[in-house]
Amino acid sequence: MNSRDTHPQRNFPSAKDECATLAPHPSYDRPGSAYELAFKDESFLLRDDMRPIRLQLELLKPEKLLDEQGVHATIVMFGSARILPEDTARTRLAAAEADGDPGAIARARGQLAMSRYYEEARRFAQIATQACADRGRPIVIATGGGPGVMEAGNRGAYEVGGKSVGLNIVLPHEQYPNPYITPELCFRFHYFGLRKMHFLMRSIALVCFPGGYGTLDELFETLTLIQTGKSRRRPILLFGRDFWTRLINIDLLLETGMISPGDEQLFQYVETAEEAWAVLSQQPELAASAGA
Rank of each mutant, 00 (worst) to 15 (best):
R92D: 14
L93N: 13
A94C: 09
A94P: 08
A95D: 15
A98M: 09
D99S: 15
D99L: 14
D99W: 03
G100I: 08
G100F: 12
G100D: 05
D101V: 11
P102L: 06
G103E: 15
G103N: 13
G103Y: 05
I105M: 04
A106I: 02
A108K: 00
A108H: 03
A108N: 07
A108F: 08
A108Y: 03
A108T: 06
R109E: 15
R109I: 01
G110M: 04
Q111R: 11
L112V: 08
M114T: 00
R116A: 12
Y118R: 05
E119D: 14
E120D: 13
R123W: 04
R123F: 02
R123H: 14
A125W: 07
A125P: 07
Q126D: 10
T129Q: 06
Q130D: 13
A131Y: 01
A131Q: 15
A131I: 00
C132V: 12
R135N: 12
G136H: 09
R137C: 14
P138H: 11
P138D: 14
V140K: 03
V140R: 04
I141D: 09
I141K: 03
T143L: 02
T143Y: 05
G144Q: 04
G145H: 03
G145R: 01
G146E: 00
G146W: 03
G146Y: 00
G148D: 02
G148M: 00
M150Y: 01
A152K: 01
N154C: 02
R155L: 00
R155E: 04
G156H: 09
A157N: 06
A157H: 10
Y158F: 13
E159M: 05
G161F: 02
G161V: 12
G161S: 11
G161T: 11
G162L: 07
G162Q: 13
V165G: 07
G166Y: 08
L167I: 10
L167E: 04
I169C: 05
I169Y: 06
I169T: 04
V170A: 12
P172W: 03
P172G: 06
H173W: 01
E174Q: 13
E174G: 01
Q175R: 06
Q175M: 08
Y176P: 01
Y176N: 05
Y176S: 05
N178H: 06
N178W: 00
P179Y: 02
P179T: 00
Y180F: 15
Y180K: 01
I181E: 03
I181N: 01
I181S: 01
T182M: 06
E184Y: 01
L185V: 07
C186L: 10
R188D: 10
R188E: 15
R188N: 15
F189R: 03
Y191P: 06
Y191M: 07
F192D: 07
G193R: 09
L194W: 02
R195W: 05
K196H: 09
M197Q: 13
M197H: 13
H198K: 12
F199C: 11
F199L: 14
L200P: 00
L200R: 10
R202Y: 08
S203L: 08
S203W: 06
I204A: 09
I204C: 15
L206W: 00
L206N: 14
L206Q: 12
L206I: 03
V207L: 13
C208M: 06
C208G: 10
F209H: 04
P210T: 09
T215Y: 11
D217Q: 14
D217Y: 09
L219I: 14
F220K: 12
E221K: 05
T222W: 06
T222F: 07
L223P: 11
T224P: 08
T224F: 11
T224H: 10
T224Q: 11
T224W: 08
L225E: 11
